[in-house]
Design a binder for these strands. Structure first.
Lengths: 324, 324
DNA sequence: GCTATTTATAAATCTTGCATATTAATGCAT
DNA sequence: ATGCATTAATATGCAAGATTTATAAATAGC
């Protein structure tokens, strides 16, 4: 018994319109085709559904009993299909993303707020983690994708460039560093430096950049948190080298930043996902938004991905940030 | 979006068996056919359901979300189909039948009892009515079929011969009528006769039979109820002419019956149904039983359709008898 | 690197479904 | 009653779709 949905639709059409010719027109098929479909249905269930002659079509007792069954069946099917269609048309579901702490505290919340304003049925789970953990979480499917530093070259992961996160020199406003014609490694290494802790990705990048310029980064002070480093700069303990995107830099009138004239002080921020693994439509959509935001701010001066929160801000988000 | 049940079945098979090759074997199709079916489904809903390469097949996030939807859909469909199949396999429903009073009080209850013992999900509604009302009720679809007297020749009704109901001569045991060599119309009209009321179908038949034999039925007494007529015979008021099937004749040792030697004293009992109108399987089944019972007793002597109640009898039946 | 396994693709074949044309039946009007 | 109009059933040819066979490409394990 291989009853078909088209057969059921045909049955309901004949019942609804009270005739084969009218029903066939409604179904956009010829009348003989409909006659055959109905007969197939009747043959397959082994029951006559209509008593029909050339002048009248009437449900049999069996047809009357089965009509509500078929109606419910089609209703359920259609509503399930409508449900499925929503998946592709209106993004929804939960997006899980692993992200570097600096990025999680930086431009991401604003982007999420904007996205959720347009796609209210999407929720987010943010997991902030250091670079290596981001990779691991993507690989273990703990998250749908990750935002991390570029340069990974794993066979099972794909990366997409988002933007670059430039390390900038942070100095007290009015400090001589602001007047320098050139902020190269040899120049800035003349000043006492506030550097991040050895374990951080920022420090690793600084060390590598100094090495690339044939120098060694020598800290006057070390800090684990960027806010601490900023405080040290404000206290005059030295110059810091921090990501331009760091929110810790904002809101202080007494400090300023300038780019460092060395290609080594830039890291690529990339989206990391499993190779050959497709994502929820909502995730596809969100990564597009991420890239669009990155491109638009790349065209303008100022810190990368410096998105303003339009309405509500992070507090309004149903976002769970889970430390790692 | 014209999603097919076969596509959904294919999806569930791949999920259940974890691979296209195995699933294709289970579905009795070739592997390329299955690949195409899954791709069609994915194209039609606009969503990728599996991430697959030559070595592994894995549900996407979307596939995971949609799996329960599809599972429920198929489950509902299959159970509805099983439900429908029961209609043809196990008769059920309510059989409504209009029947002559003599038949309703005669062999029918036992037949119904036997039928219900084998088909417990069938219930009956009996409506006893005189011949004309039987026809009308069949025509108006108040009943599924009727049991009445033959000779109807309406264009919209079909009849099927069931048996013949013979009118017999009823006389006190030991009466001279029992010894007659021939019980023809001229002979029996010599005796005082107890006839049924003019309004009854029995009386009409008697009158016609007498007329056919060139005679006129002259009653010594008239009765409206057969039991009255029987009592009159027992009291010696005359000979009665009654249907052989009448239960009123049973259980009296002091009366006897004999056939009347005239073809006019027989009426055909027929099943009456609407022409070109199909019946519930349960009804088809029951009419078969009716005919089988009629045939089997036609081969044996004795009153027609004299079925014994095997168990319980009419009191055990969930049968509503509605007077008319 | 080779082999075995598994999905994807290509092409040919086969089935199925559909449309056109026609027939048969039936109600209605004359 | 007779003819007309309407409607479902049938026949047939065709076209689209599905399926199979054969083959290719990719990948994991040895």
């Amino acid at each position: 018994m291989d009853v078909n949905l088209r057969q059921i639709r045909a049955f309901l059409a004949v019942v609804g319109l009270g005739g084969f010719t009218r029903a066939a027109a409604a179904l956009n098929i010829s009348q003989p085709a409909l006659t055959i479909r109905i007969r197939q249905l009747e043959d397959q269930i082994g029951l006559r559904l209509f008593d029909r002659n050339t002048r009248s079509v009437q449900l049999t007792r069996v047809g009357q009993e089965l009509l509500p069954v078929f109606q419910r069946l089609m209703k359920d099917f259609d509503s399930a299909m409508a449900d499925i269609r929503e998946f592709s048309e209106e993004p929804r579901g939960t997006i899980r993303v692993a992200v570097l702490p600096s990025f999680a505290a930086g431009p991401l919340p604003a982007l999420i707020a904007g996205f959720r304003a347009r796609n209210p049925r999407v929720s987010f789970v943010l997991k902030d983690a250091v670079g290596k953990r981001v990779l691991a979480m993507v690989r273990n499917e703990e998250v749908d994708f990750g935002i991390g530093v570029g340069g990974v070259d794993e066979p099972d992961l794909d990366t997409i460039d988002v933007c670059e996160d430039r390390l900038v020199l942070v100095y007290p406003r009015g400090h001589a560093a602001g007047e320098l014609p050139l902020a190269s490694v040899p120049v800035i290494s003349q000043f006492p430096l506030v550097l991040m802790d050895k374990d951080t990705s920022v420090r690793r990048l600084v060390d590598e950049a100094f090495a690339g310029a044939g120098s060694i980064a020598t800290p006057a002070c070390e800090a684990t948190y960027m806010s601490t480093a900023v405080s040290m700069v404000r206290a005059g303990l030295g110059l810091a080298i921090l990501p331009a995107s760091a929110t810790e830099l904002r809101g202080f009138a007494d400090i300023a930043t300038r780019p460092i004239d060395d290609a080594g002080f830039v890291r690529r921020i990339v989206i990391i996902k499993r190779r050959g693994s497709s994502l929820l439509p909502a995730v596809e959509e969100f990564t597009k938004v991420l890239l669009a935001a990155a491109n638009s701010c790349a065209a303008t001066p100022g810190p990368c991905l410096d998105v303003e929160v339009q309405d509500g801000g992070t507090e309004a988000l149903a976002v769970g940030v889970q430390g790692q």
